[in-house]
Design a binder for these strands. Structure first.
Lengths: 346, 346
DNA sequence: TTGTAGGCGTTATCAG
DNA sequence: CTGATAACGCCTACAA
């Protein structure tokens, strides 16, 4: 009995059992070098005292914390919620914990978070990079971090030009397939709501759109490409400007589900039938796409899978089963087009 | 120069400056007892060497990690994403980090997470308790944890009967106001889609509904109260059963936005106009409520605010500015009814 | 103003 | 099979 109010340590257990702390440590680690009898005794006493090992002390000693860092732009975006769920799932099973941080889409803040996480001695960091325009400075920064031997793994939005493992979906292919789907369904005048082009994922979706149009023998009317700034707010405007054209489109591939949804709403308001007069397909498979009417066709991003694979690969590196080098640096997941009512008359 | 490949420590800085590690430690902490000159020298050298303090070592020594734990049922639910965003926001500003775990709505797993987090030496844990039926065992568990002096703070779904600080919204009041809004709008036959009654938040919403009905002088037809199991899946069924009644309701207050949305969809399919034939109001203010047509009336839960306040209060306790006792144990946030197209003809 | 000497709780290396 | 000892990197009395 008798300990002040402080926490129980292996020394307490050792003392009560007339053993040495190192034996207790070995016993708790199930080290076979310790006699079975002693191991049982120690475990029993540990349970009796409600001993909780201090993992921070162990981390200091072992030089490993079994904690991984995750940096995302914002936690309240459905996409990141799902990816992190996948990450936590795999990490947890492998005995790791995750610390989650938000960059609020500021590359500067993102770099600061990397530094803090490293000071916390996380064993590696998974990051989906901020989408502001200050990303250029990331390259040197991350190259230095990586050169120092610290494991970094990107997912979704990556730091281009940085030599690190990456899990992404093929946005170009997603754009291609979404557009191709519209072409196959018979639409000819296909517009595109385009996200900020300094962000690779949006640029790729746009390029996929272009490729599909060319492959389908259709010309891209420059007036059919509308730039979306904040994907929800100016969704309606975008559609209005399209209808102002002398020859309005008969289909729209939007780089975001939000602007696509805004389009459905605007169409309804203006008496344009979806999909008869105008087909719409979005991107991301947000959960509301199955709730709105008509259901929004979209491109699924394999979010859970992205999280799981990222965590797996990160852990492989951290656990030493793989080095960043010997693993294929780039894992590209295939997006899946999901056809629903907004782009097909069933 | 010359360090193997290992990390830089205060000893390295001290060595290079011909100082002692303790002086460096004090200098970096801006301890005024150290001469300004030395402090500047140390900071400069630290920067030059790209020194990153080892917070895990500091944590061990100080007995504080500046890390807080957060346990939620699932990270891919919009509600928790927002709350955590709020938590991280406040925690980050106060110099804390957060480790996020998922209970997957299993009380057993939740308790296991509490133990692991404690072993990681987090300074406190914020938890939204799992919604399975095994919660009863939580009471003893949490009472013990708290009795041992470890700070626990609940939010949203709480462990009833446990004496710990809590931030919740007034679900009873939310149910009352949602229902009252329908009554004031002239609806009389008001049904309720009721969530699992072993979960306090759903029970409270139901009680609020009852109170409003009574206050409005309306009788509650038992056939008008439909139990929802999985809030999205059997939403349509619920509505179908209501329309089967000889006297169907003219309004529905749903304890979940998802079943409410399912109702809007089902109404459309069956040629029932919303809100003319049937008014619908949900609960939670999910982001899709503004996207569907008509926009769904709902009750906002103050998610960001809930996260911020929870973090603030937790930090106050951890930082010693307040004890769990001297702070009002219960902070109740007021829900806000948001009237949109689904329950009002504007 | 700076240095010395522990010690936080664990694990790893050596002996015995 | 078990014990003694040192060390992980930092902080903090206490001394000088």
């Amino acid at each position: 009995m008798a300990k002040k109010s402080g926490k129980i340590t292996i020394h307490d257990i050792a003392y009560e059992l007339g053993l040495n702390a190192s034996t207790v440590s070995r016993a708790l680690a199930d080290n076979p070098v310790v006699s079975q009898k002693t191991r049982d005794l120690v475990r029993a006493k540990a349970a009796a005292l409600n001993y909780q090992p201090n993992r921070i002390a162990a981390a200091l000693r072992r030089g490993r914390s079994d904690i991984l860092g995750v940096i995302v732009p914002a936690l309240d975006r459905a996409f990141f919620g799902k990816v992190i769920r996948g990450i936590e799932e795999k990490a947890g099973k492998a005995g790791f914990h995750i610390i989650v941080c938000q960059s609020y889409d500021s590359a500067k803040r993102e770099r600061a978070m990397v530094d803090t996480l490293r000071r916390l001695q996380v064993d590696g960091i998974m990051v989906s990079v901020a989408k502001d325009k200050e990303q250029a400075n990331n390259v040197d920064f991350y190259q230095n971090v990586i050169a120092s031997g610290f494991p970094i793994h990107f997912f979704d939005t990556i730091a281009e030009g940085v030599d690190a493992p990456v899990v992404v979906i093929d946005n170009e292919q997603g754009g291609f397939e979404a557009t191709s789907h519209l072409i196959k369904a018979g639409y000819q005048r296909i517009a595109h709501l385009r996200g900020p082009q300094h962000v690779p994922i949006y640029r790729d979706r746009y390029l996929g759109y272009i490729r599909a149009m060319e492959a389908g023998g259709l010309t891209v009317d420059p007036g059919y490409v509308i730039d979306i700034v904040s994907h929800f707010d100016n969704g309606e405007e975008a559609f209005l400007s399209l209808w102002d054209l002398t020859q309005p489109p008969d289909a729209v591939f939007s780089s975001s589900d939000y602007s696509a949804a805004a389009g459905i709403k605007a169409s309804e308001k203006h008496g344009i039938r979806v999909p008869e007069d105008l087909a719409i397909i979005g991107f991301s498979n947000e959960s509301f796409t199955e709730i709105i009417t008509p259901n929004l066709s979209t491109v699924d991003q394999q979010t859970l899978e992205m999280g799981r694979r990222t965590a797996e690969r990160m852990i492989a590196v951290v656990a030493g089963n793989a080095t960043s080098e010997d693993m294929e640096q780039r894992l590209v997941l295939a997006p899946r087009v999901i056809v629903r009512g907004s782009s097909s008359v069933l």
